[in-house]
Design a protein around this nucleic acid. Sequence first.
RNA 1: GGGCGAUUGGCUCAGUGGUAGAGCGCCUCGUUCACACCGAGGAGGUCACUGGUUCGAACCCAGUAUCGCCCA
Length: 876
Amino acid sequence: MSSSAPLSRVPEKVSLEGLEDRWSHAWEGQGTYAFDRTRTRAEVYSIDTPPPTVSGSLHVGHVFSYTHTDVVARFQRMRGREVFYPMGWDDNGLPTERRVQNYFGVRCDPALPYDPGFTPPQVGGEGKSARAADQVPVSRRNFVELCERLTVEDEQQFEALWRRLGLSVDWSQTYQTIDERSRAVAQKAFLRNLARGEAYQAEAPGLWDVTFQTAVAQAELEAREYPGHFHRVAFHRTDGTGAVHIETTRPELIPACVALIAHPDDERYQHLFGTTVRSPLFDVEVPVLAHPAAEPDKGAGIAMCCTFGDLTDVQWWRELQLPTRSVVQRDGRLAAETPEWITSGSGRRHYADMAGRTTFSARTAVVDALRSSGDLDGEPAATQRMANFYEKGDKPLEIVTSRQWYIRNGGRDEGTGAGLREGLLARGAELQFHPDFMRVRYENWVNGLNGDWLISRQRFFGVAIPLWYPLTADGEVDHDRPIVPDEALLPVDPSSDVPPGYTEDQRGVPGGFVGEADVMDTWATSSLTPQIAGGWERDPDLFERVFPMDLRPQGQDIIRTWLFSTVLRSHLEHGSLPWRHAGISGWILDPDRKKMSKSKGNVVTPMGLLEEHGSDAVRYWAASARLGTDAAFEVGQMKIGRRLAIKVLNASRFALGFAGDDVPLDRPLDPADVVVPLDRAMLAGLADVVRRATEALEAYDHTRALELTETFFWTFCDDYLELVKDRAYGSGDEVPTAETVSARTALGLALDVQLRLLAPVLPFATEEVWSWWRSGSVHRAPWPTPDALPAGDVDPATLDAAGRALAALRKVKSEAKVSMRTRILTAELAVPTAQLPLVEAAVQDVRAAGRAVDLTLVGEDGLEVAVVRGAELEQG
RNA sequence: GGGCGAUUGGCUCAGUGGUAGAGCGCCUCGUUCACACCGAGGAGGUCACUGGUUCGAACCCAGUAUCGCCCA
């Protein structure tokens, strides 16, 4: 900026139009938000923003919560902290994978080697799903390249939105969760977990999505109501003394039955414990056992345990050491081969009728057969049951046995992980949640964990698990002796890269090696965003200056996933929290008080919203909602914000106009020039607002700060500006009086402070005004402090008392239905006795603002508010 | 079933022990003089319900109802 004193740059007409474009470019050009990495950790305020999923759609919820973060960032920057505010894109995961398949007509086959010259068969599928058979198989590395290519567009769209919204992000710090650095971090963290025994593989029954054909983790579950039928089915006692009836919603699992189980205290079944029964149709002999997890008042009180119908079956199977008799395959169909445990001729015939069919179709077949055999008691009764779903799936999850990788999370604290759950609860207690009650969601989740974190996925677009396995001389995979890469070579792709000590021609041959085909769950990477953005191990100098981060802002919906898993990884790797504070934003509710749905969110696109109302207005709406509180999607609130932004422009233009066009505006304002009590009272009130707003922002209560500032600003405009208008204009061309200088100086000081107070919420309007008379950016200006304003020698209530006196004069005119410019020729102004000295101190301004020619001021006991009596108004 | 949060004027929300608040909307009026994307004035609420504590409760305690969410 120019060092010579600039003259008035206050425009004749002010407008909000075009401010976003102009200032976002100026900020970029001037590096206003660039991070200075020479600053020490104590000087830095670092923010770990959860990267949005770029292949998902933008919605107003993003705008809402990201604005909250930006308000904090701007406040901390003005407070003098060097703000580390990077932005990432979460492009790693299933949604992108599916888009890429259709867009380019490819599918990933991780067994294939990388083809550097690959060109996709098509670019831009016309929105329709390409048939799997028509898709060209490509290596995982080729697939990742296509994903990166496609997500670039999405990311540009997001960035354009964030820039228009005014996020003060340092755009040179951007990362993607699938980029090379992220893959290296995710793989390194995994290998460290493996080396410390925190990551392990196990062959175990687990939840499985038959549509996506992948295992899923507890955090991805969603319990939903699912319609079904209770079937009352007879099992036959092997001693020939009759039948035992059970009720089941899944009769197709009868061939997988391994026991009948009742509660140990259930009187009805005491005599059956220890005996055996035969399953209907399939004639398999199974024991009747007791276990406390059986629910006596549910159905018949005795249940069939199958491998596996639900998680209780898994518990029974494990604790009662039952055999494994699985019939449901990974594709959701029953095994084509008749299982060897079904031995009777009729049993094998019955199974053959259902072999290879889906569970739904098999159920129909079984029910028909049960009806024919007489083993179905009555007709199936419709019911609603809770079933586990993958959050992105639409079929209930099955449970299949498979080899998977896990990271310990305290969910199975017996064994080596003992104490981990307590450690994570202690981290939760250490983390400062805003609002505080959000901590219980974390605690509920940690206490409710019932298994370790399953991180392997049988998918393709994700970070590869960086391992190979030796092949024995027989060609068998030796999973027990995984081969790890050198950390310096990360990231690796086991399908293309060769493990140490091997050559490529040994891939897949006996005595050679094979790459791990699975990828990590998206969360296994995105739980490391503080490490990715902070340059963990890659840039230790940076990492030391930003980690642990100060703030993790996020939505309440991902406390159990993103927040928890990030705490876990940091706890395991660094023995610390990943951040000190977590700011949790609420939901956006539609006018029906329901969570804003995608379909409704799409009607109003975020960019359209910003274009219609202006970014400051939309930010005002978002900033008006407290952390943790759901907010209504309310256009009215945006209009209020717009009104405030326009008022800032107009009031500023007015206040700055008194000085005249030939006066240098960026001159120092000396508080000692403020000598009139009313002016000093106004500044004292502002000092109090500064103090309280600062306290509120330090406590992550941006709403309170905004409310305080906004309320003061309107009083400043409606009362103070009106009161001092005449005095500030001055009498003429000669040297201004001390009273005029006092008003002009007070106006300048007040404006200067209020612009800075409003800057975090209204970055565009405040920057515009700042540019008229100040140098540099308001967003790099120091946050105001109360001690820079004169105070202490005058009652701050003076402004309020004078304002009320003015209101009394206005009321007379309003009730007389005359213009506010109408002069009051004579009147008596009665004020509460206590306020008399305050009003007296400002009576000249009150008289001028009220256009009262002859005003008699009296104090009166028992009066609540100033009143005007005997007013005689100018005619015409 | 357990937990968390909410319930204040038509709407959106502040207000955590001392006479009910704001903005929007509404009504009346004004306005070439910073701002019509404006200004002034006004009307409008037994603070969900029932008990309790207290000199005093929107606020604290117990319970109930309704709504939302989380976990089972």
